[in-house]
Design a protein around this nucleic acid. Structure first.
Length: 534
RNA sequence: GCGGGUGUAGCUCAGUGGUAGAGCGUCACGUUGCCAACGUGAAUGUCGUGGGUUCAAGCCCCAUCACCCGCUCCA
Protein backbone atom coordinates (compact mmCIF):
# COMPACT_ATOMS: atom_id res chain seq x y z
CA UNK A 1 0.00 0.00 0.00
CA UNK A 2 1.40 3.34 -1.01
CA UNK A 3 -0.90 5.86 0.57
CA UNK A 4 0.48 9.12 1.79
CA UNK A 5 0.00 10.06 5.41
CA UNK A 6 -2.54 12.63 4.30
CA UNK A 7 -4.56 10.06 2.34
CA UNK A 8 -4.61 7.80 5.36
CA UNK A 9 -5.72 10.61 7.60
CA UNK A 10 -8.51 11.62 5.20
CA UNK A 11 -9.60 8.00 5.10
CA UNK A 12 -9.58 7.72 8.89
CA UNK A 13 -11.57 10.95 9.20
CA UNK A 14 -14.24 9.49 6.96
CA UNK A 15 -14.15 5.99 8.45
CA UNK A 16 -14.35 7.07 12.06
CA UNK A 17 -16.63 10.04 11.61
CA UNK A 18 -14.39 13.07 12.00
CA UNK A 19 -14.86 14.84 8.68
CA UNK A 20 -17.15 14.18 5.73
CA UNK A 21 -17.44 15.99 2.46
CA UNK A 22 -20.45 18.29 2.36
CA UNK A 23 -23.48 17.07 0.38
CA UNK A 24 -21.63 13.86 -0.37
CA UNK A 25 -24.69 11.91 -1.47
CA UNK A 26 -25.17 14.46 -4.25
CA UNK A 27 -21.60 14.23 -5.41
CA UNK A 28 -20.06 16.71 -2.99
CA UNK A 29 -19.58 20.45 -3.08
CA UNK A 30 -16.18 21.99 -3.68
CA UNK A 31 -14.82 23.80 -0.64
CA UNK A 32 -17.37 22.69 1.95
CA UNK A 33 -16.95 20.08 4.68
CA UNK A 34 -18.98 18.55 7.50
CA UNK A 35 -17.83 17.40 10.91
CA UNK A 36 -19.07 13.97 12.03
CA UNK A 37 -19.77 12.72 15.56
CA UNK A 38 -16.10 12.64 16.55
CA UNK A 39 -15.12 15.69 14.50
CA UNK A 40 -17.69 17.95 16.09
CA UNK A 41 -16.37 17.04 19.56
CA UNK A 42 -12.78 17.68 18.52
CA UNK A 43 -13.54 21.02 16.91
CA UNK A 44 -15.72 22.09 19.84
CA UNK A 45 -12.93 21.22 22.23
CA UNK A 46 -10.50 23.34 20.23
CA UNK A 47 -12.87 26.30 20.17
CA UNK A 48 -13.66 25.87 23.83
CA UNK A 49 -9.98 25.63 24.76
CA UNK A 50 -9.42 28.88 22.87
CA UNK A 51 -12.43 30.61 24.42
CA UNK A 52 -11.51 29.45 27.90
CA UNK A 53 -7.78 30.23 27.62
CA UNK A 54 -8.20 33.59 25.88
CA UNK A 55 -11.52 34.95 27.19
CA UNK A 56 -13.27 33.25 30.15
CA UNK A 57 -10.34 32.12 32.24
CA UNK A 58 -8.26 35.18 31.48
CA UNK A 59 -6.63 36.67 34.58
CA UNK A 60 -7.42 40.38 34.28
CA UNK A 61 -5.79 41.26 37.58
CA UNK A 62 -2.28 39.85 37.33
CA UNK A 63 0.31 40.64 34.69
CA UNK A 64 0.82 37.79 32.24
CA UNK A 65 4.40 36.88 31.33
CA UNK A 66 5.56 39.17 28.55
CA UNK A 67 2.54 41.49 28.86
CA UNK A 68 3.13 45.23 29.38
CA UNK A 69 0.29 45.43 31.94
CA UNK A 70 -2.88 43.67 33.09
CA UNK A 71 -5.71 43.68 30.57
CA UNK A 72 -9.32 42.63 30.29
CA UNK A 73 -10.99 40.22 27.89
CA UNK A 74 -14.65 39.97 26.91
CA UNK A 75 -16.55 38.06 24.24
CA UNK A 76 -18.95 38.87 21.44
CA UNK A 77 -21.10 37.00 18.94
CA UNK A 78 -22.00 39.09 15.90
CA UNK A 79 -24.31 38.48 12.97
CA UNK A 80 -22.88 36.95 9.82
CA UNK A 81 -24.65 39.45 7.57
CA UNK A 82 -23.88 43.10 8.26
CA UNK A 83 -24.67 46.44 6.66
CA UNK A 84 -23.05 46.50 3.18
CA UNK A 85 -21.26 49.73 4.05
CA UNK A 86 -19.18 47.80 6.61
CA UNK A 87 -17.36 45.98 3.81
CA UNK A 88 -16.85 49.15 1.81
CA UNK A 89 -15.15 50.90 4.72
CA UNK A 90 -13.19 47.83 5.75
CA UNK A 91 -11.66 47.66 2.29
CA UNK A 92 -13.05 44.20 1.52
CA UNK A 93 -15.47 45.44 -1.09
CA UNK A 94 -12.74 46.88 -3.32
CA UNK A 95 -10.26 44.12 -2.67
CA UNK A 96 -12.69 41.24 -2.98
CA UNK A 97 -14.74 42.53 -5.84
CA UNK A 98 -12.43 42.59 -8.80
CA UNK A 99 -12.67 42.36 -12.50
CA UNK A 100 -9.80 40.26 -13.71
CA UNK A 101 -8.42 39.57 -17.14
CA UNK A 102 -6.61 36.41 -17.96
CA UNK A 103 -3.84 35.96 -20.48
CA UNK A 104 -4.14 32.68 -22.32
CA UNK A 105 -0.48 32.82 -23.35
CA UNK A 106 1.19 33.45 -19.98
CA UNK A 107 -1.72 31.93 -17.96
CA UNK A 108 -1.44 34.92 -15.67
CA UNK A 109 -4.39 36.73 -14.21
CA UNK A 110 -4.44 40.49 -13.71
CA UNK A 111 -6.70 42.92 -12.03
CA UNK A 112 -8.50 44.67 -14.87
CA UNK A 113 -8.11 48.11 -13.33
CA UNK A 114 -4.43 47.56 -12.58
CA UNK A 115 -3.22 46.86 -16.07
CA UNK A 116 -1.82 49.94 -17.79
CA UNK A 117 -0.50 50.64 -21.23
CA UNK A 118 0.02 52.97 -24.17
CA UNK A 119 -1.04 53.03 -27.78
CA UNK A 120 1.91 52.96 -30.14
CA UNK A 121 2.36 52.72 -33.88
CA UNK A 122 5.37 51.43 -35.80
CA UNK A 123 5.98 49.66 -39.07
CA UNK A 124 2.39 50.42 -39.99
CA UNK A 125 0.89 48.57 -37.03
CA UNK A 126 -0.94 50.17 -34.09
CA UNK A 127 -0.93 48.23 -30.83
CA UNK A 128 -1.67 48.76 -27.13
CA UNK A 129 1.36 47.78 -25.06
CA UNK A 130 0.14 46.66 -21.64
CA UNK A 131 2.17 46.41 -18.44
CA UNK A 132 1.30 45.52 -14.86
CA UNK A 133 3.02 48.54 -13.32
CA UNK A 134 1.73 52.13 -13.27
CA UNK A 135 3.62 55.43 -13.40
CA UNK A 136 7.17 55.97 -14.61
CA UNK A 137 8.15 52.36 -14.20
CA UNK A 138 5.25 51.31 -16.38
CA UNK A 139 6.06 53.89 -19.03
CA UNK A 140 9.63 52.63 -19.23
CA UNK A 141 8.42 49.09 -19.51
CA UNK A 142 6.10 49.90 -22.39
CA UNK A 143 9.02 51.31 -24.34
CA UNK A 144 11.12 48.21 -23.84
CA UNK A 145 8.22 45.93 -24.69
CA UNK A 146 7.35 47.93 -27.80
CA UNK A 147 10.95 47.83 -29.07
CA UNK A 148 11.04 44.11 -28.57
CA UNK A 149 7.67 43.53 -30.20
CA UNK A 150 8.53 45.54 -33.32
CA UNK A 151 12.01 44.08 -33.33
CA UNK A 152 13.68 47.50 -33.13
CA UNK A 153 17.01 48.53 -31.64
CA UNK A 154 17.15 51.12 -28.89
CA UNK A 155 18.67 53.67 -31.27
CA UNK A 156 15.55 53.40 -33.48
CA UNK A 157 13.31 54.38 -30.60
CA UNK A 158 12.03 57.37 -32.59
CA UNK A 159 10.29 54.98 -34.99
CA UNK A 160 7.77 54.35 -32.21
CA UNK A 161 4.91 56.79 -32.50
CA UNK A 162 3.27 57.00 -29.07
CA UNK A 163 -0.28 58.22 -28.52
CA UNK A 164 -0.76 59.87 -25.16
CA UNK A 165 0.36 58.79 -21.72
CA UNK A 166 -0.07 55.59 -19.77
CA UNK A 167 -3.77 54.69 -19.67
CA UNK A 168 -5.74 52.02 -17.90
CA UNK A 169 -6.77 48.90 -19.75
CA UNK A 170 -10.35 49.71 -18.80
CA UNK A 171 -10.26 52.39 -21.51
CA UNK A 172 -9.51 49.85 -24.22
CA UNK A 173 -12.54 48.39 -25.96
CA UNK A 174 -11.03 45.84 -28.31
CA UNK A 175 -8.37 43.50 -26.89
CA UNK A 176 -7.24 42.20 -30.30
CA UNK A 177 -4.39 44.76 -30.66
CA UNK A 178 -3.42 44.47 -26.99
CA UNK A 179 -0.03 43.07 -26.07
CA UNK A 180 -0.50 41.46 -22.65
CA UNK A 181 1.93 42.30 -19.82
CA UNK A 182 3.68 38.94 -20.07
CA UNK A 183 2.75 38.00 -23.62
CA UNK A 184 4.76 38.00 -26.84
CA UNK A 185 1.78 38.01 -29.20
CA UNK A 186 -1.31 40.22 -29.54
CA UNK A 187 -4.83 39.55 -28.38
CA UNK A 188 -4.06 37.01 -25.67
CA UNK A 189 -6.10 38.75 -22.99
CA UNK A 190 -9.57 37.36 -22.40
CA UNK A 191 -12.77 39.21 -21.56
CA UNK A 192 -12.66 40.89 -18.14
CA UNK A 193 -14.51 38.70 -15.69
CA UNK A 194 -15.89 39.55 -12.29
CA UNK A 195 -14.41 37.78 -9.30
CA UNK A 196 -16.63 37.91 -6.24
CA UNK A 197 -14.49 36.81 -3.36
CA UNK A 198 -17.23 37.75 -0.92
CA UNK A 199 -20.36 35.62 -0.97
CA UNK A 200 -23.39 37.56 -1.99
CA UNK A 201 -26.87 37.10 -0.70
CA UNK A 202 -30.19 38.91 -0.88
CA UNK A 203 -32.02 40.37 2.09
CA UNK A 204 -35.80 40.23 2.12
CA UNK A 205 -38.24 37.87 0.48
CA UNK A 206 -38.82 40.24 -2.43
CA UNK A 207 -35.25 41.51 -2.53
CA UNK A 208 -33.56 42.43 -5.76
CA UNK A 209 -30.01 43.41 -6.65
CA UNK A 210 -30.29 46.64 -4.62
CA UNK A 211 -30.90 44.47 -1.54
CA UNK A 212 -27.64 42.57 -2.01
CA UNK A 213 -25.60 41.91 1.09
CA UNK A 214 -22.56 39.84 1.86
CA UNK A 215 -21.81 36.93 4.14
CA UNK A 216 -18.92 38.14 6.27
CA UNK A 217 -15.45 37.22 5.01
CA UNK A 218 -14.10 37.70 8.55
CA UNK A 219 -15.61 38.06 12.02
CA UNK A 220 -13.38 41.03 12.87
CA UNK A 221 -15.60 43.75 11.42
CA UNK A 222 -18.44 42.80 13.76
CA UNK A 223 -16.09 43.51 16.64
CA UNK A 224 -15.01 46.90 15.30
CA UNK A 225 -18.61 47.88 14.67
CA UNK A 226 -19.50 46.96 18.25
CA UNK A 227 -16.41 48.50 19.80
CA UNK A 228 -18.32 51.51 21.10
CA UNK A 229 -21.17 49.32 22.37
CA UNK A 230 -18.76 47.18 24.35
CA UNK A 231 -16.89 50.17 25.78
CA UNK A 232 -20.17 51.84 26.77
CA UNK A 233 -21.78 48.74 28.26
CA UNK A 234 -19.14 46.58 29.88
CA UNK A 235 -16.94 48.98 31.87
CA UNK A 236 -13.82 47.65 30.16
CA UNK A 237 -10.87 50.01 30.08
CA UNK A 238 -8.07 50.08 27.55
CA UNK A 239 -6.11 47.87 27.20
CA UNK A 240 -8.71 45.18 26.58
CA UNK A 241 -9.57 42.56 24.01
CA UNK A 242 -12.78 41.27 22.44
CA UNK A 243 -12.90 37.63 21.34
CA UNK A 244 -15.27 36.03 18.89
CA UNK A 245 -15.70 32.58 17.39
CA UNK A 246 -17.81 32.23 14.29
CA UNK A 247 -18.29 31.28 10.68
CA UNK A 248 -16.91 33.26 7.78
CA UNK A 249 -17.24 32.82 4.05
CA UNK A 250 -14.93 33.43 1.11
CA UNK A 251 -15.11 32.35 -2.48
CA UNK A 252 -11.65 30.88 -2.53
CA UNK A 253 -10.49 30.59 -6.10
CA UNK A 254 -8.91 27.20 -5.56
CA UNK A 255 -10.33 25.27 -2.59
CA UNK A 256 -7.89 22.44 -1.99
CA UNK A 257 -6.02 20.33 0.53
CA UNK A 258 -8.89 18.78 2.45
CA UNK A 259 -10.39 21.38 4.81
CA UNK A 260 -7.39 23.71 4.64
CA UNK A 261 -8.90 26.11 2.15
CA UNK A 262 -12.66 25.96 2.64
CA UNK A 263 -15.22 28.42 1.41
CA UNK A 264 -17.16 28.23 4.67
CA UNK A 265 -14.89 28.21 7.68
CA UNK A 266 -14.77 29.15 11.31
CA UNK A 267 -12.56 31.80 12.84
CA UNK A 268 -11.39 32.49 16.36
CA UNK A 269 -10.54 36.16 16.41
CA UNK A 270 -9.39 38.67 18.98
CA UNK A 271 -9.31 42.39 18.46
CA UNK A 272 -7.11 43.85 21.14
CA UNK A 273 -7.40 47.58 21.81
CA UNK A 274 -4.51 49.52 23.29
CA UNK A 275 -2.83 52.92 23.44
CA UNK A 276 -0.82 53.74 20.32
CA UNK A 277 2.43 54.12 22.28
CA UNK A 278 2.22 50.64 23.81
CA UNK A 279 0.99 48.85 20.69
CA UNK A 280 4.35 47.43 19.50
CA UNK A 281 4.81 45.72 22.88
CA UNK A 282 1.30 44.28 22.78
CA UNK A 283 1.89 43.06 19.27
CA UNK A 284 4.94 41.10 20.42
CA UNK A 285 3.05 39.78 23.43
CA UNK A 286 0.17 38.39 21.37
CA UNK A 287 2.47 36.97 18.74
CA UNK A 288 4.40 34.94 21.27
CA UNK A 289 1.40 34.04 23.38
CA UNK A 290 -0.57 32.63 20.48
CA UNK A 291 2.42 30.65 19.25
CA UNK A 292 2.82 29.14 22.71
CA UNK A 293 -0.88 28.18 22.78
CA UNK A 294 -0.46 25.75 19.90
CA UNK A 295 2.66 24.29 21.44
CA UNK A 296 0.88 23.75 24.75
CA UNK A 297 -1.89 21.81 23.01
CA UNK A 298 0.54 19.48 21.35
CA UNK A 299 1.78 20.81 18.02
CA UNK A 300 5.46 19.92 17.71
CA UNK A 301 7.93 22.77 17.67
CA UNK A 302 9.70 21.42 14.59
CA UNK A 303 6.48 21.66 12.59
CA UNK A 304 5.29 24.99 13.99
CA UNK A 305 6.76 28.27 12.88
CA UNK A 306 6.30 31.89 13.85
CA UNK A 307 7.11 33.92 10.78
CA UNK A 308 7.28 37.70 10.67
CA UNK A 309 6.10 39.20 7.41
CA UNK A 310 8.60 41.11 5.31
CA UNK A 311 7.94 44.81 4.91
CA UNK A 312 6.77 44.34 1.28
CA UNK A 313 4.31 41.70 2.40
CA UNK A 314 2.53 43.98 4.86
CA UNK A 315 -0.88 45.40 4.10
CA UNK A 316 -0.89 49.12 3.48
CA UNK A 317 -2.08 49.89 6.99
CA UNK A 318 -0.14 47.31 8.99
CA UNK A 319 2.91 48.08 11.07
CA UNK A 320 3.70 44.43 11.66
CA UNK A 321 2.22 41.02 10.92
CA UNK A 322 3.31 37.52 11.87
CA UNK A 323 1.91 34.19 10.80
CA UNK A 324 1.81 31.06 12.88
CA UNK A 325 2.37 28.31 10.37
CA UNK A 326 2.27 24.53 10.45
CA UNK A 327 4.14 22.07 8.24
CA UNK A 328 1.06 20.22 6.99
CA UNK A 329 1.84 16.83 5.45
CA UNK A 330 0.14 17.79 2.17
CA UNK A 331 2.63 20.58 1.60
CA UNK A 332 6.03 20.16 0.01
CA UNK A 333 8.89 19.52 2.43
CA UNK A 334 9.95 22.84 3.94
CA UNK A 335 6.61 24.52 3.19
CA UNK A 336 4.27 25.75 5.90
CA UNK A 337 0.55 26.65 5.89
CA UNK A 338 -1.02 29.48 7.85
CA UNK A 339 -2.92 28.66 11.05
CA UNK A 340 -3.20 32.15 12.46
CA UNK A 341 -2.16 35.66 11.58
CA UNK A 342 -1.30 38.24 14.21
CA UNK A 343 -1.50 41.74 12.77
CA UNK A 344 -0.72 45.14 14.17
CA UNK A 345 -3.44 47.11 12.42
CA UNK A 346 -2.81 50.52 13.91
CA UNK A 347 -5.92 52.71 13.97
CA UNK A 348 -6.95 51.75 10.44
CA UNK A 349 -10.13 49.90 11.37
CA UNK A 350 -11.67 52.25 13.92
CA UNK A 351 -10.78 55.32 11.89
CA UNK A 352 -12.18 53.78 8.69
CA UNK A 353 -15.48 53.09 10.41
CA UNK A 354 -15.45 56.59 11.85
CA UNK A 355 -14.26 58.72 8.91
CA UNK A 356 -14.59 56.52 5.83
CA UNK A 357 -12.37 54.09 4.00
CA UNK A 358 -8.72 55.04 4.37
CA UNK A 359 -5.80 54.74 1.99
CA UNK A 360 -2.11 55.29 2.57
CA UNK A 361 -0.67 58.58 1.37
CA UNK A 362 3.00 58.72 2.16
CA UNK A 363 3.30 57.99 5.85
CA UNK A 364 -0.30 58.84 6.59
CA UNK A 365 -3.67 57.22 6.22
CA UNK A 366 -6.20 59.55 4.63
CA UNK A 367 -9.81 59.13 3.62
CA UNK A 368 -9.94 57.77 0.08
CA UNK A 369 -11.75 60.12 -2.26
CA UNK A 370 -14.04 59.36 -5.15
CA UNK A 371 -13.97 61.22 -8.51
CA UNK A 372 -16.21 63.94 -7.00
CA UNK A 373 -13.70 64.74 -4.25
CA UNK A 374 -15.99 63.33 -1.58
CA UNK A 375 -15.10 60.26 0.49
CA UNK A 376 -15.27 57.18 -1.72
CA UNK A 377 -16.99 55.25 1.06
CA UNK A 378 -18.49 57.25 3.92
CA UNK A 379 -17.79 56.07 7.45
CA UNK A 380 -20.35 55.87 10.22
CA UNK A 381 -19.63 59.38 11.43
CA UNK A 382 -19.70 58.04 14.99
CA UNK A 383 -16.94 59.09 17.36
CA UNK A 384 -14.92 55.95 18.02
CA UNK A 385 -12.18 57.66 20.02
CA UNK A 386 -11.44 56.70 23.63
CA UNK A 387 -11.02 59.01 26.59
CA UNK A 388 -8.63 57.77 29.23
CA UNK A 389 -9.58 59.18 32.63
CA UNK A 390 -6.22 58.55 34.26
CA UNK A 391 -4.25 60.64 31.80
CA UNK A 392 -7.08 62.80 30.43
CA UNK A 393 -5.99 61.75 26.97
CA UNK A 394 -8.28 61.21 24.00
CA UNK A 395 -7.08 58.89 21.25
CA UNK A 396 -8.21 56.36 18.70
CA UNK A 397 -7.16 52.96 19.94
CA UNK A 398 -4.63 50.89 18.08
CA UNK A 399 -5.57 47.31 17.31
CA UNK A 400 -3.69 44.03 17.52
CA UNK A 401 -5.53 41.22 15.73
CA UNK A 402 -4.74 37.56 16.44
CA UNK A 403 -6.95 35.82 13.89
CA UNK A 404 -7.01 32.03 13.95
CA UNK A 405 -8.70 29.44 11.76
CA UNK A 406 -10.63 26.87 13.80
CA UNK A 407 -10.81 24.40 10.93
CA UNK A 408 -7.14 24.81 10.15
CA UNK A 409 -6.28 24.28 13.80
CA UNK A 410 -8.47 21.18 13.84
CA UNK A 411 -6.69 19.87 10.76
CA UNK A 412 -3.27 20.63 12.22
CA UNK A 413 -4.06 18.85 15.49
CA UNK A 414 -5.33 15.84 13.52
CA UNK A 415 -2.21 15.77 11.33
CA UNK A 416 0.03 16.08 14.36
CA UNK A 417 -1.87 13.36 16.25
CA UNK A 418 -1.96 10.76 13.47
CA UNK A 419 0.51 8.05 14.22
CA UNK A 420 1.18 4.48 13.12
CA UNK A 421 3.16 2.27 15.45
CA UNK A 422 3.94 -1.32 16.13
CA UNK A 423 2.63 -2.97 19.29
CA UNK A 424 3.87 -6.51 19.90
CA UNK A 425 4.30 -7.13 16.19
CA UNK A 426 0.94 -5.60 15.25
CA UNK A 427 0.38 -2.27 13.57
CA UNK A 428 -1.85 0.19 15.32
CA UNK A 429 -3.17 3.56 14.24
CA UNK A 430 -3.50 6.03 17.05
CA UNK A 431 -4.50 9.68 17.30
CA UNK A 432 -2.30 11.15 19.99
CA UNK A 433 -4.53 14.12 20.62
CA UNK A 434 -4.02 16.26 23.69
CA UNK A 435 -6.49 14.96 26.32
CA UNK A 436 -8.16 18.37 26.41
CA UNK A 437 -8.93 18.11 22.71
CA UNK A 438 -9.80 14.41 22.49
CA UNK A 439 -13.48 13.77 21.58
CA UNK A 440 -13.83 11.16 24.33
CA UNK A 441 -11.87 11.56 27.53
CA UNK A 442 -12.26 7.92 28.50
CA UNK A 443 -13.86 4.64 27.45
CA UNK A 444 -15.32 2.11 29.87
CA UNK A 445 -15.13 -1.63 29.19
CA UNK A 446 -16.25 -4.69 31.13
CA UNK A 447 -13.40 -7.13 30.52
CA UNK A 448 -15.96 -9.87 29.82
CA UNK A 449 -19.73 -9.79 29.79
CA UNK A 450 -20.30 -11.88 32.89
CA UNK A 451 -19.82 -12.09 36.65
CA UNK A 452 -21.54 -8.73 37.10
CA UNK A 453 -18.81 -6.80 35.31
CA UNK A 454 -21.23 -5.07 32.90
CA UNK A 455 -23.31 -3.80 35.83
CA UNK A 456 -20.31 -2.17 37.48
CA UNK A 457 -19.04 -0.84 34.15
CA UNK A 458 -22.38 0.73 33.37
CA UNK A 459 -22.49 2.44 36.73
CA UNK A 460 -18.98 3.81 36.24
CA UNK A 461 -20.03 4.98 32.78
CA UNK A 462 -23.12 6.79 34.03
CA UNK A 463 -21.22 8.45 36.85
CA UNK A 464 -18.37 9.67 34.67
CA UNK A 465 -20.72 10.87 31.98
CA UNK A 466 -21.84 13.64 34.31
CA UNK A 467 -18.32 15.11 34.13
CA UNK A 468 -16.83 14.02 30.80
CA UNK A 469 -17.71 12.80 27.35
CA UNK A 470 -17.10 9.06 27.81
CA UNK A 471 -17.81 5.98 25.71
CA UNK A 472 -19.08 2.54 26.71
CA UNK A 473 -18.13 -0.58 24.76
CA UNK A 474 -18.75 -4.22 25.63
CA UNK A 475 -18.51 -5.78 22.19
CA UNK A 476 -15.85 -8.26 21.10
CA UNK A 477 -12.47 -8.82 22.63
CA UNK A 478 -11.04 -6.12 24.84
CA UNK A 479 -7.95 -5.69 22.60
CA UNK A 480 -10.14 -4.67 19.71
CA UNK A 481 -11.92 -2.16 21.88
CA UNK A 482 -8.59 -0.62 22.90
CA UNK A 483 -7.57 -0.26 19.27
CA UNK A 484 -10.88 1.29 18.30
CA UNK A 485 -10.40 3.92 20.97
CA UNK A 486 -6.81 4.51 19.77
CA UNK A 487 -8.17 5.55 16.38
CA UNK A 488 -10.65 7.89 18.04
CA UNK A 489 -7.88 9.47 20.10
CA UNK A 490 -9.39 8.49 23.47
CA UNK A 491 -6.62 9.01 26.00
CA UNK A 492 -7.84 6.62 28.72
CA UNK A 493 -9.56 3.25 28.76
CA UNK A 494 -11.03 1.92 32.00
CA UNK A 495 -11.52 -1.81 32.27
CA UNK A 496 -13.64 -3.50 34.89
CA UNK A 497 -12.11 -6.92 35.59
CA UNK A 498 -12.22 -9.76 38.12
CA UNK A 499 -10.31 -7.79 40.68
CA UNK A 500 -12.85 -4.98 40.53
CA UNK A 501 -15.38 -7.37 42.08
CA UNK A 502 -13.14 -7.69 45.12
CA UNK A 503 -11.56 -4.27 45.71
CA UNK A 504 -13.56 -1.74 43.67
CA UNK A 505 -10.59 -0.75 41.53
CA UNK A 506 -10.36 -0.67 37.74
CA UNK A 507 -7.44 -0.54 35.34
CA UNK A 508 -6.76 2.72 33.56
CA UNK A 509 -4.86 2.24 30.34
CA UNK A 510 -2.87 5.08 28.82
CA UNK A 511 -3.35 5.50 25.08
CA UNK A 512 0.23 6.52 24.32
CA UNK A 513 2.26 4.36 26.71
CA UNK A 514 -0.17 1.41 26.95
CA UNK A 515 0.69 1.32 30.66
CA UNK A 516 -2.09 0.19 32.97
CA UNK A 517 -2.56 1.24 36.57
CA UNK A 518 -5.19 0.35 39.11
CA UNK A 519 -7.40 3.17 40.34
CA UNK A 520 -10.24 3.03 42.84
CA UNK A 521 -13.62 3.69 41.24
CA UNK A 522 -14.23 6.42 43.81
CA UNK A 523 -11.16 8.30 42.63
CA UNK A 524 -11.74 7.97 38.88
CA UNK A 525 -13.33 11.35 38.37
CA UNK A 526 -10.51 13.19 40.12
CA UNK A 527 -7.79 11.14 38.42
CA UNK A 528 -9.20 11.73 34.94
CA UNK A 529 -9.80 15.39 35.64
CA UNK A 530 -6.21 15.88 36.76
CA UNK A 531 -4.82 14.09 33.70
CA UNK A 532 -7.07 15.86 31.20
CA UNK A 533 -6.19 19.28 32.55
CA UNK A 534 -2.53 18.54 33.01
C1' G B 1 -8.35 29.15 -14.43
C1' C B 2 -4.75 25.49 -17.16
C1' G B 3 -2.49 20.48 -17.60
C1' G B 4 -2.28 15.35 -15.73
C1' G B 5 -4.52 11.42 -12.71
C1' U B 6 -8.54 9.09 -10.00
C1' G B 7 -13.85 7.84 -8.92
C1' U B 8 -16.68 0.10 -7.91
C1' A B 9 -19.48 -1.99 -0.38
C1' G B 10 -18.26 2.15 5.60
C1' C B 11 -12.49 2.00 4.37
C1' U B 12 -8.53 0.09 0.95
C1' C B 13 -8.81 -1.92 -3.69
C1' A B 14 -9.34 -6.05 -7.81
C1' G B 15 -12.47 -6.45 -11.91
C1' U B 16 -10.02 -4.94 -20.65
C1' G B 17 -17.74 -5.62 -23.58
C1' G B 18 -21.28 -11.10 -21.41
C1' U B 19 -23.75 -13.63 -13.53
C1' A B 20 -20.95 -7.40 -8.89
C1' G B 21 -15.86 -9.36 -6.13
C1' A B 22 -11.78 -9.59 -2.08
C1' G B 23 -9.47 -7.97 2.49
C1' C B 24 -10.53 -5.07 6.54
C1' G B 25 -14.55 -2.94 9.14
C1' U B 26 -19.92 -3.28 10.83
C1' C B 27 -24.05 -6.25 13.07
C1' A B 28 -26.08 -10.88 15.60
C1' C B 29 -25.24 -15.41 18.37
C1' G B 30 -21.71 -18.45 20.85
C1' U B 31 -17.02 -18.18 23.13
C1' U B 32 -14.02 -14.70 26.17
C1' G B 33 -9.88 -13.32 31.81
C1' C B 34 -5.98 -7.17 29.00
C1' C B 35 -3.93 -5.03 23.42
C1' A B 36 -7.06 -5.39 15.87
C1' A B 37 -8.39 -13.65 19.33
C1' C B 38 -11.80 -17.67 17.40
C1' G B 39 -16.29 -20.09 15.35
C1' U B 40 -21.01 -19.56 12.90
C1' G B 41 -24.26 -16.49 10.53
C1' A B 42 -25.91 -11.69 8.41
C1' A B 43 -26.41 -6.89 6.18
C1' U B 44 -24.30 -3.62 2.71
C1' G B 45 -23.63 -1.43 -4.21
C1' U B 46 -28.38 4.12 -8.56
C1' C B 47 -20.08 0.80 -10.28
C1' G B 48 -19.75 9.57 -8.89
C1' U B 49 -23.87 11.83 -12.11
C1' G B 50 -26.24 12.57 -17.01
C1' G B 51 -26.29 11.26 -21.99
C1' G B 52 -24.48 8.22 -26.18
C1' U B 53 -22.50 3.65 -28.93
C1' U B 54 -23.86 -1.69 -28.60
C1' C B 55 -27.97 -7.50 -28.81
C1' A B 56 -25.25 -6.42 -24.20
C1' A B 57 -21.45 -1.05 -20.72
C1' G B 58 -18.28 -1.00 -14.22
C1' C B 59 -15.26 -1.49 -18.86
C1' C B 60 -15.87 2.23 -25.12
C1' C B 61 -17.38 7.71 -26.45
C1' C B 62 -19.21 12.77 -24.85
C1' A B 63 -20.52 16.02 -21.00
C1' U B 64 -20.64 17.12 -15.93
C1' C B 65 -19.41 16.84 -10.59
C1' A B 66 -15.97 15.64 -6.82
C1' C B 67 -11.09 14.35 -5.05
C1' C B 68 -5.55 14.07 -5.76
C1' C B 69 -0.83 16.03 -8.14
C1' G B 70 1.69 20.14 -10.79
C1' C B 71 1.20 25.33 -12.41
C1' U B 72 -1.81 29.82 -11.22
C1' C B 73 -4.23 32.50 -7.30
C1' C B 74 -4.47 33.34 -2.08
C1' A B 75 -6.96 40.73 0.66
Amino acid sequence: MDMSKMDKLVSLCKRRGFIFQSSEIYGGLNGFWDYGPLGVELKRNIKEAWWRDMVQAHDDIGVLPGAPSPFEMVGLDCSIIMHPQVWKCSGHYDLFHDFKVECNESKKRYRYDQVWGRWVEAKGQRIFVAVAAPGEEGTKETEQKALKFFNLRAKNVEELKWEGDLACLTAVKDFAPVLGPDAKSLGTLGEPREFNLMMKTIIGALGGEEDAAFLRPETAQGIFCNYKNVVDSSRVKIPFGIGQVGKSFRNEITPRNFTFRSREFEQMEIEFFCKPATSPDWYKFWRDRRYQWYLNLGLAQERLRLRDHHKEELSHYSCGTADIEYAFPFLAAGDFGELEGIAHRGDFDLRSHQEGKLVRQGDNLVVEQGPDGKPKYKGSGKDLSYFEEATKERFISHVIEPSAGADRATLAFLCEAYCEEEVKGDQRVVLKLHPRLAPYKAAIFPLVNKDGMPDIAQKVYRDLKKSFNVFYDDSGAVGRRYRRMDEAGTPYCLTIDGQTLQDQTVTIRDRDTLVQERVAIAELEAVIRARVQG
